[in-house]
Every structure is written in structure tokens, then in C-alpha cells.
Amino acid sequence: MVTAAPYEPKKKQIVDHLAPTAVDKTFNSKATAGEEGMISVRDMDFNYGAKRALHHIQMEIPSKQVTAFIGPSGCGKSTLLRCFNRINDRIQGAHIASGQVIIKGKNIYDKDVDTTSLRRQVGMVFQKYNPFPKSIYENVVYGLRISGVKKKADLNDACEYALKSAALWDECKDRLKQNAFGLSGGQMQRLCIARAIAVKPDILLMDEPCSALDPIATLKVEELILQLKEQFTVVIVTHNMQQARRVADLTAFMYLGELIEFADTLTIFSNPQQLKTEEYIRGQFS
């Protein structure tokens, strides 16, 4: 399947020192086209008050893959991502105008959907790392505590699991009780990822997770994302096309609130079907 030669060595290089399975499970978008994905968006319109932000979005996001949203600023990629756990509900006047977002066979905008229950199953990592002003440990187990886990052993296990999954365990296992703000930026972002996966969600949404990080920290987070897709369905918004190319199995290009093109990453970058996509990827606008 891998055809886009110029990019392959680099990708391979990253993937190589990661878990070997990552290479094997290269995704073929056509294989799932038409089938039900993990997240399916059905002809969705989304409004901020009277202003329409997303038009007729239609997409199937497959399970246990990394899907990237790219596009110029203000194209609606973050808005779309934030629809998946309904965190947009926080904003006054934001609402879905028509269509559905179906996760695990259920339209999450139905009235009988409990947002807290939804958000426990759809985790999110934000653009700017935002640990709580608490200890590292308390940050990681926060999600468990609020869902009522009280047993010390359970919490400790979850903490270790999450920090290991986020490749942070070795760096901070001796300072779990210290304030999270003592960590470096990259570490804080990985802590936020650990915090999100400690509750074992099915889906992990990442809103430009590396935009506030330096290149080395970015690389580490990217490695982490590739590891995470073994367990989670990852959806990532990124401003950086290289990043999408490096981590994503599928890429969606959005422009002015519309989904222009959605295909597997290699197709998008090597053989885009739409003129707009091609222009964007060539860097003719941003």
C-alpha cells in the first residue's frame, strides 16, 4: 500500500523503533469505505449562534487508527473535533443544526445522552497543556476519582498504567507527589495525555497537541501517538502537514467549514483528488 516513496524512509524510521505492529496495520481507507466507523458523522451542520461553522460534514472515522484533520486556520477542524465529545456545549449558542454524530452506534446529540458519560469514553487533549494545579499523581487519577474510584490500589495501578502508556513513567515515578507545574512543557502535555487515557476511553481527541511544544518534545508526543493507536482511536487536529504525514493513517482536509477531502494519508499527500487540497498541500495558501 505504501506508495509515496519520498516520505517512506522517514516514516519507517519513526515507526521502526516503535512497536512492530504499527507497521503491519497500515490502513486502507477503501476497505472501510461505506462501513460503519468508530465515529460516523452524518450530514452534520454546526452553528455558533446564527453563524454556521460546519457545513454538511459526512465522514466515517475508523477504529484504532490515527485520523488527522488539516486545513487553514478557522476552517472548522477544531470545531469538528470538539463536536465529538460535545465540549462545544460549553460555548454559549453553539449547537448542532442538523445531522448526527454517531459514536458506538449512538447519536451523541440525542437527548438521552449524558455528556459526562460520553466524555468519559471520548477523551481529549488540548492545544495548550493544561494540568491542574495539583500533584502529578492527582492529575492522572483525577478522571478515576470523579467517576467514584476510591480504592488506593486501583488508583495506583491506573496511574502507573497511564504514565507508562504516555511514556512518562520513568521520568516522574519518583516525583508523583510533586506539583505538575514542575514538569517541562512536553512532559506536561504527555501528562495531560496520561490523564486522558487513565480512564481508558475508546477515543482520544487531540486538538493540536504539539503546537505549544518545541521540536524534540513534539517528536516524543508523535511517537506516543503512534503507540496509542494500538489501544485507542485517535483523532488529531494539526496545523502541521508534516505531522499529519508522520502520524496519521487517514487525513481529512477541511476548508471554510467544509470537508473537502478525506482519504488515507498517502493518497491525500501524494495524489489529492481536489484542487483545493492540492493547493493547500503545495503551500499555495494557508
Binding site: 452524518r42 448542532i96 448526527q100 454517531i102 459514536i103 458506538k104 452506534g105 449512538k106 447519536n107 451523541i108 446529540y109 440525542d110 437527548k111 438521552d112 445522552v113 449524558d114 458519560s117 460520553l118 469514553q121 467514584g148
Partner: peptide
């Protein structure tokens, strides 16, 4: 928000958990 046939299915993964929390 019109509910489709699918979303009215009995098993709702995001149903409210019964608890004292509310």
C-alpha cells in the same frame, strides 16, 4: 435534532449512570 432509527435503539452507551451524584 431528529432521532434516527439507530439512535433510539435500546442500548445507549452514553446513558446516564444511575448514581447519587445527580
Amino acid at each position: 435534532m431528529h432521532a434516527s432509527a439507530k439512535s433510539t435503539s435500546p442500548d445507549n452507551p452514553f446513558a446516564k449512570r444511575k448514581s447519587h451524584l445527580e
